[in-house]
């Protein structure tokens, strides 16, 4: 183990370490803690310049205020409308592409694979004008499904990389045995490989949920009105309305961050497994 386990060092060092941990954490999360504190501060405190002192009271009504006096509820709903279909779509498509690239040996296999990988890395701006145009032509501009459709296509690149590597690590004998038995290829996919892919599907779903929930660029490019915009774009325009009303901005930020944060804490194992795929050989 590296570094040397703290238990093997002197008692003073152990105490120092145990003290350093919370101090480091508080410093690390300082911007977050500050915003969390501000979100429950009454507006009056801010007006009087009490930014860091003890709040005169806990103003949880800031959160109610945000929900009542802004469209944050509908922004959140829009985010779900975009995110959930994207997760389903991208994962479904990539189980198939991953299966095709992980199981079959054909000449252009690696070429197609690296097409997906490379496409996944390109800057969004090179796609922006044509994708916006295409979405307009399809009559899907400023709709949740127009945005979701693009996300599905783009995320298929990353998901294929992930799924293909996962399937490649499965025991190939299983598939060979099934072929000898004369099982049709689509049955091999559906009844043999798909059940084994459950952990990969879980990991990808959590990751894609977070990525799409947090997307801001495409939300601003493909949606324009508050009836369709997801929370990231919504928060940005609310920020414009709430000039210097930091207690509202803070509460709104916390609300916007909540779903992916919950997702992360509930599915932590899968989330990290997905993120660190390939970090170990």
């Amino acid at each position: 183990m590296f570094p040397r386990p703290i238990q093997q060092t002197s008692l003073t060092a152990q105490w120092m370490y145990k003290l350093a941990l919370p101090v480091a954490l508080i410093l690390w999360l300082l911007p977050l803690l500050g915003v969390a504190m501000t979100s429950v501060r009454p507006a009056m405190d801010l007006a009087q310049g009490n930014y860091f002192g003890i709040p005169s009271s806990f103003a949880f009504e800031n959160y109610l205020d945000v929900f009542r006096n802004s469209d944050i509820g509908s922004y959140m709903l829009n985010s779900f409308k975009v995110t959930i279909p994207t997760v389903i779509g991208a994962v479904a498509l990539s189980t198939m592409t991953g299966f095709a690239l992980g199981i079959y040996k054909f000449r252009s296999n690696l070429l197609v694979f690296f097409l997906f990988v490379a496409g996944n890395f390109v800057p969004f701006q090179i796609l922006m004008v044509p994708v916006r145009d295409l979405t307009l032509d399809l009559g899907m501009y400023n709709t949740w499904y127009g945005l979701a459709l693009f996300h599905i296509a783009f995320q298929t690149g990353f998901c294929t990389l992930f799924m293909r590597n996962f399937i490649k690590a499965l025991p190939f004998e299983l598939i060979e045995a099934a072929r000898v038995e004369g099982v049709a290829e689509w049955r091999i996919f559906w009844y043999i490989v798909l059940p084994l892919m459950r952990p990969a599907i879980a990991a990808l779903s959590v990751l894609i949920f977070t990525f799409i929930w947090n997307d801001f660029f495409w939300a601003t490019v493909l949606t324009t009105s508050k009836e369709t915009q997801p929370i990231t774009a919504g928060l940005s325009s609310l920020n414009g309305q709430w000039v210097a009303a930091w207690h509202l901005v803070s509460a709104g930020s916390i609300i916007a961050a909540l779903p992916p944060v919950l997702m992360f804490f509930l599915m932590q194992k899968h989330f990290i497994a997905g993120l660190t795929l390939g970090a170990v050989k």
Partner: peptide, 15 residues
């Protein structure tokens, strides 16, 4: 890392 960059941006603007 889990938090949206929009929220990170707002947090640091406040900071």
């Amino acid at each position: 890392f889990v938090i949206s960059q929009v929220v990170v941006g707002l947090m640091f603007s406040w900071f």
